[in-house]
């Protein structure tokens, strides 16, 4: 089973509504299209100095995979998440 860690970034220290919705979209796509992949979710506050130092300024909600910003500024659609995961799991 493949494993992937996905970081969801938001403006708060905990999951806000938009971050939760983003996580749910990712979960749904994984269940439907990538059943053999195990995803670990992590959350960061993108307005904290350590996040800015590492990734620069971002707009929430954002998705970071393997230190790469793959999406920011809106809740992604399922097809966008699918394309992102296809790229990182190929």
């Amino acid at each position: 089973m493949k494993e992937l860690t996905i970081i969801i970034g938001g403006g708060l220290d905990t999951y806000c509504i938009n971050c939760s919705k983003t996580r749910d979209v990712v979960k749904k796509v994984v269940e439907k299209k990538f059943p053999d992949v195990h995803i670990d979710f992590d959350h960061i506050n993108i307005s904290r100095p350590e996040s800015i130092s590492k990734y620069g300024p971002m707009l929430p909600p954002c998705i970071i995979i393997q230190d790469t910003i793959v999406h920011e500024g809106s809740i992604p659609t399922e097809s966008i998440v699918e394309k992102i995961l296809e790229h990182f799991l190929k």
Binding site: P49, I52, S53, K54, Y55, G56, I65, D67, T68, I69, V70, H71, S74, I75, P76, T77, S79, I80, K83, I84, H87
Partner: peptide, 22 residues
């Protein structure tokens, strides 16, 4: 907030349908 290092980005090309859905 000094940014350190190079930030990597991966862009997915959004279709008009993705944009309308969002």
């Amino acid at each position: 907030y000094a940014t350190t290092g190079q930030v990597k980005r991966f862009e997915v090309k959004k279709t008009i349908h993705d944009r309308v859905e969002t």
